[in-house]
Amino acid sequence: MVDIDDKLFWIGGLGWPGDAYGQVFLGRAARQLGKTLFPSDWTGAEMMTELPYPRDVFYIDGEERTTPKPLFWIEVHLLDILARVIRENHPEIGIRFTPGPTRRPVLTDEQYMMALTTIERVNPIRGAALSRWAKVSAELGAALRDGKIKFALLPTQGGQFLTDTQPFWWNIPSTAHRWMRCRMSPTEPYSTASVGAGFMYIFVDDADLASFLADHRMADATAATPMQQSSNKTFTAALALLSNWNPPKRTIRAFESYCKENGISSKIAREAYGTLGTAKGRKRA
């Protein structure tokens, strides 16, 4: 489970120090990279995404695992998971519990199926969010490790930035603990703790970050160029066919067929035909 304070820190930006003197707080740098890598999917809450719920344990063994086990087959400890699924995603649904200190949930068949349906819906969303965060944290961590982005540390009470840092401080098996509160100890840079005495906020160099993000945007644009060029050439070819096309009846269906004979898709044909409405001296059939 994710700590509520960590959620407020990341999702709400609670307690984030301000950027200053050409330094950008690590949390904001991660968000900027996330928006660059995933412009339409990035939410900003990826860091605090819960792990997917267990799924396969509720289904009969097999390659597909698509047949749910009967409710009476479900072990007691797994009932707690199902109850948590309902509580977290359908708080309006009341769950009955057994009396006594153990308080085990007693689910109806409808609640059981609701929990399984919720797991099927929520798990892909969580998995995608975790994948986005894994890419962002890995790429930014690698850039810090390789010296592509310089970093500095700021005491939690504020003051002067400590710029005497080393990129190899990021050459560790896992940097997951550093992202929890975006802190590091300059005297114990390899500590696996996320907070503690002497821990400081991590900032990255603004100019280095801007260059790093620009490189990513350039790479994305370059990767998209061949497809865009191909589409533009095809559209130009369709316009050329249109300008020399003089059938007895100028209809969009006739033009689609004509383009198809010349290896041009109906989609491009319709886009080209649509220019008839704006071309001077031409009218739609």
Rank of each mutant, 00 (worst) to 15 (best):
D6I: 15
D6S: 14
K7P: 01
K7M: 13
L8I: 10
L8K: 12
F9D: 01
W10R: 02
I11C: 04
G12H: 09
G13N: 02
G13S: 02
L14M: 05
L14N: 03
G15A: 05
W16N: 04
W16K: 03
W16H: 08
P17L: 02
P17Y: 04
P17A: 06
P17T: 07
G18R: 15
G18W: 09
D19E: 04
D19T: 02
D19V: 03
D19I: 02
D19M: 00
D19G: 01
A20T: 09
Y21N: 15
Y21F: 12
Y21D: 15
G22A: 03
Q23S: 14
Q23C: 13
Q23E: 15
Q23N: 15
V24G: 02
V24P: 05
V24F: 07
F25P: 01
F25L: 05
F25V: 06
F25A: 06
F25Y: 14
F25Q: 03
L26A: 04
L26C: 02
L26F: 10
G27N: 13
R28C: 12
A29P: 04
A30Y: 03
A30E: 06
R31F: 10
Q32F: 07
Q32L: 12
G34V: 02
G34C: 06
K35S: 12
K35I: 06
K35Q: 14
K35G: 11
T36H: 07
L37C: 02
L37G: 00
F38A: 08
F38K: 08
P39S: 07
S40K: 13
S40C: 06
S40R: 13
